[in-house]
Amino acid sequence: MEQIEAYFNHTLSEAERIQFEQALKSNPALAEEVAFWVQARAAAQAEARARRKEELTQLGQQLQQKGRRSLYYALSAAASVVLCLGIGWYVWLRKSVGESNYTQAWAQTYVETNFSTLEGLKLGNAEADSLQLGIRSYNEGDLQKAKVIFEALLQRDSTNAEAEKNAGLVSLRLKEYDQAIEHFHRLGTRTDLVSNPGKFYEAIALLMKNEPLTQKSAQNLLNEVKRDKLEGWKEVE
């Protein structure tokens, strides 16, 4: 067996190799030994390969599990960071809003003091008649009727600043804050008015809505009103 190995490992001398090959031709027993060695080698290689493949497959499964765990940890870490940032931001927001003088309570008082009645206009046209009708309904406490009248006026003429303002005030009194904010925001963006309370009233409506984000927006608007001396600035000095 040792000589057979030496032959296949190419470690025989030239003379030994020739002698071995000669013997192989004439010695059937040697041929049989060589056949066995070749087969045993092939069997050992096949068996070793099969076993190694099984080991590598298990390694592959471990890698897959490790990959899934890593992904899970990464997603958990990311979610934790987002959650922490979100909580931190919310806490900061509430704190910064809480530090302000202008709160929902302040807005409530302002609404009760200043918006319980509306002043009428003295113009002699049909539009003014509708407006007066709306104002009368508002002052009589029929807010729903007033809302219908002002909304109809806006349908006919979307540039009617007085109707826009009054529609906003009605919505505010009816606690329909989103609609109020919408009316006052449209009013506040107009640049053709001599006196424009839009931004100030929008801030009031945002404060009345009383949510952290709206509180922050209200603060920003009030700062703008104060800075640019827009209508209502004296209230926020």
Partner: peptide, 9 residues
């Protein structure tokens, strides 16, 4: 067995 498998590898 281990020896022959190592040889096979």
């Amino acid at each position: 067995r281990e020896m022959i498998l190592a040889w096979g590898e």
